[in-house]
Nucleic acid binder design. Structure first.
Lengths: 219, 219
DNA sequence: CCACGTTTGAAACAATTGTTTATAACCAGG
DNA sequence: CCTGGTTATAAACAATTGTTTCAAACGTGG
């Protein structure tokens, strides 16, 4: 199948280049020449560069959200209305993240793309992701809420984003960090190693004591 | 003084635009028109766009590193060779970060720039920062090492970067997150609020139990 | 085999980018 | 005052960008 082949080659090449250099820094000519397709093919098949970017994300996020929803279904069935422990929820999320790129490209690319979606301005991207994939995140946070009833809502909100930062920042900058780590501690880290290290850190962070109330002179 | 005025206006405008949209997405024409200076002024005073980017960083990092070094000097003098407690070190870093932009622009811009330095490819930037400001980071990590002797070196390395991600991600995305937080919990968060919330989270994260050793099937 | 919608191909387009050039304005020191 | 180096200005440059165009090739259903 000719079209599908062209479309796939564009997506495969684009996601790697985007992950390496960002969206604005990756030209369509770079993509199409590396993918060995005609320059006009991108606009023909995707309409625009913006749509290509969204298509790259969709190819990761569609299977991920489906799998994650399924995993949450299992979990809720297993716990029958009781609150699901925090560790279970985090574990489930980690597993869902780890599984998806196995059937696609590398996890590194996936994480790097997520990091870019947050850091690059690209307003259209954040809007697109929020609109199409926000529901699974809402569902997850609600379960987290039930798992951490002792936390005030605002505190939990911020801590979730603290941890989101930890994960995205680390995994999306993995290559650079891995180079340093290997040189200094000659240890070859895999993504799975990192997830293993992340687990106790995230759990402890979420269960940290509440902050002291603001002092008077901070007002 | 004419030159200084032009140079300052360029830097003031550039740092805001860079923080808002990233480096590649901000053209020299946008900067110079908003700053009301001639387009050629950037190349005349800075040489190139790359150098302008570095100059924007230097204007934040120079006073920061000086202040931070000074604060660490005080701390070491006060503790006379004994290990400085982890909380003190983190507190000192937080204070140094909070103080600097007070004499310059907003902390938000500073954090956003730091986030960009990591996320945008811009190889030259990371190299420049590492080369010119790496020493204070090295000094800080060594003190952290003495404060957390129970942590294996590699584990501490990764946890420090976990926390770096937490801080940079949260503070650099502050605007978007603040909007959500205000709408959902009608709470007006300041940067100082966030630092207060971050403190116990970071401490707990650094002191989390060590991860379980990798299981056999993960090899 | 032919006709028709789909896909590819090479070229051109218009807009934008960073940088350079040459000229003018400025502003001190003699 | 005017002269010499510094700064400002407008214009042009060359390169690169995303997108469009239109003709050629393709491939499938009649």
């Amino acid at each position: 199948m000719a079209q599908n082949d062209t479309v796939t080659r564009i997506l495969d090449t684009a996601e790697v280049l985007f992950a390496e250099r960002g969206f604005a820094e990756t030209s369509l000519r770079t993509i199409t020449s590396k993918a060995k397709v005609n320059l006009a093919a991108v606009n023909y098949h995707f309409g625009s560069k913006k749509s290509l970017i969204q298509a790259v994300f969709a190819r990761y996020l569609d299977p991920f959200t489906e799998r994650f929803h399924g995993a949450l279904d299992d979990l809720e069935r297993r716990y029958q209305g009781q609150a699901i422990p925090l560790e279970e929820l985090l574990e489930t999320m980690a597993r869902s993240v780890l599984e998806v790129p196995a059937e696609r490209n590398s996890l590194k690319v996936f994480m790097r793309l997520l990091g870019l979606a947050y850091s690059q301005a690209q307003g259209h991207l954040r809007r697109y992701i929020q609109q199409d994939y926000g529901s699974v995140f809402t569902r997850f946070t609600e379960l987290i809420r039930q798992a951490t009833p002792e936390l005030p809502d605002a505190e939990r909100f911020w801590r979730l984003h603290f941890m989101l930062g930890t994960v995205i920042f680390t995994l999306s900058g993995l290559d650079a960090l891995r180079d340093i780590a290997e040189k200094d501690y000659d240890e070859h880290v895999t993504v799975r190693d990192l997830v293993r290290r992340l687990r106790p850190v995230v759990v402890s962070a979420m269960q940290a004591p509440l902050p002291a109330p603001p002092t008077a002179r901070e007002a």
